[in-house]
Design a protein around this nucleic acid. Structure first.
Lengths: 250, 250
DNA sequence: TCTCTTTTGCGCGTTTTTGATTGTTTATCC
DNA sequence: GGATAAACAATCAAAAACGCGCAAAAGAGA
């Protein structure tokens, strides 16, 4: 019997039974255990099966897991507080945009009680969470980036331009010493610029780690934001609005 | 039984019962308590369960589980075979569209070895899987429907119209006795019609349960499809092409 | 047929897994 | 709060599975 032919038979068996031991394969195919082991090693190298001690199992993609699991993000607890505060600003029947970031992700947990709201986002994990909570959700579409599972680029920007957004909730990578919001990539700043432009009101969620952090691309000056939600009084070094209502420190 | 297999069984039991004791697991799986404890410790380390004194409980919030988990879909094994066959038709550097359905979902598992392909889809679970496998993926965008976690509607249709698609892989809800492909909702038929229109070649994946099943909305007659992949010879009752190469029975 | 290459099977030391045992910690009941 | 029972972590030995080197066998090409 040819090697590849045996590979196919092994795959067929694994497909059918989901799990199969090396010993059993050896008996079924009338070849020695070392041979089966070599076969399994090769098939695992090709990602066609998953090797496990004693045999092999079907390489079937598991549940769709959102890699942006917020419990693994830094400062998850603080970010959660910011999100709760932000969600409190949403009114029934609002049309809001929430951008794709670990900072805003947890807003999904605090929007269930709003009536008739529409959420637009470019973040797939967030969109999935929202939908599962029964919230009317639009996702921008476009190319998907692996790191963030988010949409960026011209199509996503065009998509946003079709909406008149009541309130934008967003974050960014850093706020530099000049009080400029910055991001590490151009597509990220672009989509946020568009979202800001389409929004009646802009709310910036900023945990303490972002202050005094500069990344290559400028978004907008912090003064131009309508409302800032932060957990650090450091914000006052960067911006002292005349209207104290513009800043919420949680 | 192998370790990984036991892990999966434990997870299945925990998912079903929400809480299980270590003793009970030990009895159910015919292994000793220390082994079960080691298993639970490992699964807890992977964040797949929450360990508690005496047993383990379901970890609900940890991962965003797409409702379309194909391990729970009917005919998952047959659909998998169809998907493997379909993936075999994809060439390097192709631009393909895969529609949102449980039938086509598993194609994600068989596209890793293709070079430079681009996949467009309206299904979020599929898109997520593809991205995680490193495949260049575009998702259509638009409103998201909770049942299927898929995009339908005019936004999604417009998005598709921007692409010249080499091959479309799709399914539908049923094939009625007149050989007409049918779907239970208008948005579903609409988006498929657009996808068909934009595609050079159309491939229809059809497991045996779909034959002789009529739902309200007509898509297209089965004769107009370029290639049909099915696991049932029943297809010949509905369509006998002159060119036998048009049908693949797996 | 001969030679070279690939594939296979075997022996053996190593690693992994498992179940039993021990003493310790935790929960429960009064 | 103290006694009892359950659950636990740690350790150890046996069994199973493993990887590696090497030689035999099988194929392919001249």
């Amino acid at each position: 019997m040819m090697k590849e032919e045996r590979y196919d038979q092994i795959l067929a068996i694994v497909e059918k039974e989901r799990y199969v031991s090396a010993v059993r394969l050896s008996q079924m195919l009338y070849v020695s255990l070392p041979t089966i082991r070599r076969d399994l090693a090769e098939l695992a190298r090709r990602n066609q099966i998953i090797r496990s001690h004693g045999g092999a199992k079907l390489n079937q993609s598991e549940h769709v897991v959102a890699p942006l699991d917020f419990r693994k993000t830094v400062n998850a607890a603080q970010k959660r507080a910011l999100c709760r505060c932000a969600a409190g600003m949403v009114k029934d029947f609002d049309i809001i945009f929430i951008d794709a970031s670990t900072t805003t992700l947890q807003m999904a947990d605090f929007l269930s009680d709003k009536k008739g709201i529409t959420v637009i986002t470019n973040g797939i994990p967030l969109a999935t969470l929202l939908v599962q909570k029964g919230i009317k959700t639009y996702c921008t579409g476009g190319e998907i980036f692996e790191n963030s599972l988010a949409h960026f680029g011209s199509f996503a920007e065009e998509f946003i331009q079709r909406f008149n957004i009541d309130t934008l909730f967003f974050s960014c990578h850093g706020v530099n010493d000049k009080g400029m919001l910055t991001d590490p990539s151009l597509p990220e700043t672009q989509i946020r610029k568009v979202a800001i432009h389409q929004s009646e009101k802009t709310v910036f969620l900023c945990d303490e780690t972002k202050f005094s952090l500069s990344t290559p691309y400028n978004l907008v000056p912090i003064q131009t934001i309508d409302h800032i939600i932060t957990n650090s009084t450091t914000v006052k070094k960067y911006f002292q609005p005349k209207d104290d209502g513009k800043i919420t420190i949680v």
